[in-house]
């Protein structure tokens, strides 16, 4: 006897709340205020986003000592996302890019809103701020060509 195969949606949701800690909290607070903060490490390099510990000395990073970096920078690497998923910043194809902001020596990962053909490693981009900022990584809506 053949019967229709049973099938049903099965949705799992975990509404996590996370404590940011002092460094990530300061970084997100900065984004809310349209400032991108980095950490000047013991070797002189500026890390953005800031780490919670210094990679050279293992000392905890003092959030009060974070430095502001530029809201413009350069694409160091990128990847095209042809099929956006739920929760992605755009519902149309876009790129994920690593952006080294001016004054920083490391790169931050975020969405880049540009035509695929216009994107290249080394291109200049700038932050597009979200209209409503709440202290979250999405306060940077995306990067866009500078």
């Amino acid at each position: 006897m053949s019967e229709e195969v049973l099938s049903a949606p099965h949705i799992m949701e975990f509404p996590y709340t996370r404590s940011t800690g002092p460094v990530v909290g300061a970084f997100l607070t900065g984004l809310r205020d349209q400032k991108v903060l980095g950490y000047q490490a013991s070797d002189g390099r500026v890390m953005c986003p800031p780490p919670e510990f210094d990679a050279g000395t293992n000392a905890p990073v003092d959030a009060a000592g974070l430095v502001e970096v530029g809201a413009e920078g350069v694409v160091t690497s990128w990847s095209w996302n042809p099929v956006p998923r739920d929760g992605n910043p755009f519902d149309r194809p876009f790129a994920w890019a690593l952006v080294k902001l001016d004054g920083a020596d490391s790169s931050i990962l975020h969405a880049l809103d540009a035509d695929r053909g216009a994107i290249s490693t080394g291109m200049r981009v700038k932050v597009r701020w979200a209209e409503e900022r709440v202290g979250f990584i999405n306060d940077i809506a995306c990067f866009e060509p500078a």
Binding site: L6, S7, A8, E13, P15, Y16, R18, T20, L28, G135
Partner: peptide, 27 residues
């Protein structure tokens, strides 16, 4: 106020197909 916490919801959408035993049970 400075940011001290964030919500990071995770959502996974599956389609579940029961095996023969569970199908028997559900029918």
């Amino acid at each position: 106020e400075p940011i001290t916490g964030i919500t990071t919801p995770i959502r996974m959408e599956y389609r579940y197909t029961p095996g023969t035993a569970t199908s028997l049970f559900l029918r």
